[in-house]
Amino acid sequence: MYNSGKIIIGLLVFVLAATFPIWYNAATGQSDEYKPDPKIVVDTGYCVAETNYMRKAHMDLLNDWRDRVVRDGERFVNVQGEVMEMSLTNTCMMKCHWNKEDFCDECHNYAEVSPYCWDCHLEPKEVE
């Protein structure tokens, strides 16, 4: 083999980069057992949409709400007979999911997603 030193180093760098998650996760002791668990604190028994839909596509719903409120001036939506305000802060967060850190961030951090909701919205905080 010619230039074996350089080629083996190059190949080694490539294989290490390609298999980075395997040895990095093993080295830092990241368990693949960890599963995010968004905590439901107020269990009203229902949400604005069914759980399976919310899990996959809540961003569609929130995006749709935002467009309807901001662009069309609609403020309320009828969910199973109940009139709700289309508002991330007033409906989603104030009524049920006020625990942003244990609810929203749980999955967002896991999937390394950083939604820009909080560029405008304030997260509710408990007042002592």
Binding site: N25, D32, R55, C107, A111
Partner: peptide, 15 residues
């Protein structure tokens, strides 16, 4: 699709 489930699968694969 459920991104969290997909990451669970991917983490399982590399582990």
């Amino acid at each position: 699709v459920d991104i969290v489930e997909i990451k669970n699968l991917a983490m399982g694969l590399v582990g």
